[in-house]
Design a protein around this nucleic acid. Sequence first.
DNA 1: TGATCCGGACCGCAAATCTTA
DNA 2: CTAAGATTTGCGGTCCGGATC
Lengths: 341, 341
Amino acid sequence: MKRLTISDIAERAGVSIGAVSFALNGRPGVSEATRQRILAIAAEMGWRPNAAARGLSESRAHTVGLVLARSADTLGVEPFFMKFIAGVESELALTRTALLLQVVPDHARSIEAVNDWWAERRVDGLIVMDLWARDARLPVLESMGLPAVLVGRPRPGGMPARWSAVWSDDAAAVTEAVDFLVGLGHRRIARVAGLPALEHTQVRTAAFHAAMERHGLSPVAVVDTDYTWAAGARATRELLAAADRPTAITYDNDVMATAGVSVARQLGVGVPQELSIVAGDDSQLCEMVFPTLTALSRDVQAYGVHTARTLVSLLDGGSPGSFQDTTARLVARESTGPNLI
Amino acid sequence: MKRLTISDIAERAGVSIGAVSFALNGRPGVSEATRQRILAIAAEMGWRPNAAARGLSESRAHTVGLVLARSADTLGVEPFFMKFIAGVESELALTRTALLLQVVPDHARSIEAVNDWWAERRVDGLIVMDLWARDARLPVLESMGLPAVLVGRPRPGGMPARWSAVWSDDAAAVTEAVDFLVGLGHRRIARVAGLPALEHTQVRTAAFHAAMERHGLSPVAVVDTDYTWAAGARATRELLAAADRPTAITYDNDVMATAGVSVARQLGVGVPQELSIVAGDDSQLCEMVFPTLTALSRDVQAYGVHTARTLVSLLDGGSPGSFQDTTARLVARESTGPNLI
DNA sequence: TGATCCGGACCGCAAATCTTA
DNA sequence: CTAAGATTTGCGGTCCGGATC
């Protein structure tokens, strides 16, 4: 099967390949009539520029990378990632940019993967998710000089030249949840946090403490976890077993909140009569359990769209920056109620 | 930042670029001593071949594509896809093959996406998931001449030259589930199926009928759905409202089985005392609900590994074929019990 | 003189051919 | 004649310097 190249188009149109290139890239140098003729022929023959040839010549891959550094199990249960990726994709498609994906278990392998991509010039830029407070990937990525968008807060010490950040105000969201619970009369509130190494976990925990303090309250407890159902269940069991048990618990994702509901039922603790529960992520899962879960909800797909747009703009020479996405807002469902104790 | 090229290596080693190319690709033409010297220098300088240049020269992208043709919501809730992708990835990494991903809502756009990839020679081959019984993508893909691996049964009429298939015996799995339920004394069994257009839905439904018939039973009902929680809930409500209601229901995925449990509880139907429930997919979700769900379980990640391996072998000139993966086996948990009615 | 178009030099690698000892 | 290595060509585009009308 002979492949179609630019010279086939040139031949059919009776022009040089240079003219075809100009016509197709919308640059001056060919008359409008010729341009239209070339475009028509290319479309008719179904010709598309060879990505490798173009990439070689332009020194640009028209591809960006996304590395997910988590175990497949964790990724699978959290709908967040698929929604985010779908958003990223839909935006990238507009600029004919492809998405390269890697799923690896840890940061070391994540660095390896990105290093390979960049050394081989397979990607022009990177989307970095799941930022850690002290993230081993960042200095390495910076030294590689690879353009990137961080999904999360930019680092306080200033960012490398070709890095942007897209973030959401986690502190505000946590504050809203606390205010909501306090408004319902709760005073003994606990927090089941996510991975303590993650940047946004620390931000949320700090915001939790601040919000409680503002209400003149002190947290019953803040328990760190690894986001799994088992960890959520264990944390809940401990919290409910204590003498001064909480009347409300916030969880850093929906999976653990579900575990909380399950443990409460086993222990005969009524939700929401004796215990109110707030999930930190929203998904179909929150409406699948009984009672349905009050959750901090946001448009994750749009988050992906904005992230992709920010990266593409950066690669097109746009100026880097830090862009704030919408803040999650609380969606009240059945798992929260007034404090009756 | 000057980029490292093969000629930098050649210069440092004091040989021609041809010699470097031969040395790095393990082909004859250089002495062993020179080869080692070149290899050492390349490794020391951290050189990696430019993917575009290599791709252009070899007419091979060292990249494969995977298109997910479903809504982001559906994908997010089903852990299957992320696990599968993680498996695919881990295998592709071994041969330095990259994975291009697309998430699109329907088959029409899926065809577009693949057509673009192939026309631009961005991919060497494709992984095709979620096969339909009459799949509009297949004839188009075949006419494009793109090598592919079908995840699912090969078509009865014979396969294109450079297509393979990796499949799992859905019929056997469904049969095991029916046998298990019948063994528990159930005689009124219903099936809540997935998307009727999907190949494996039809295979499973046929196997369900056959298994029931073998036991001298006739199904209470087979209800088609779209895999969503809402559809699972609606189907369950209808089944339980009927005069001759089933004592056991099998669902084509875990999300719908969860919906089934939820609806049963709302209607005051005890699980498993009055109703046994079997989930067609296994995931953490099955252990997150109460009661935990008996499910048809399999190693999805390994499925992804095998699929990737099959595609890579095909691209390397291996002979195409149809390869059977392991069959899902039933894992009994709390949602099934003896028929007490 | 200027708009329009041609020819050809690259991009970085693989691989075939040519040269040298 | 053979092994080791140098030279050259081609992959399919982009884009610059010139030539033409």
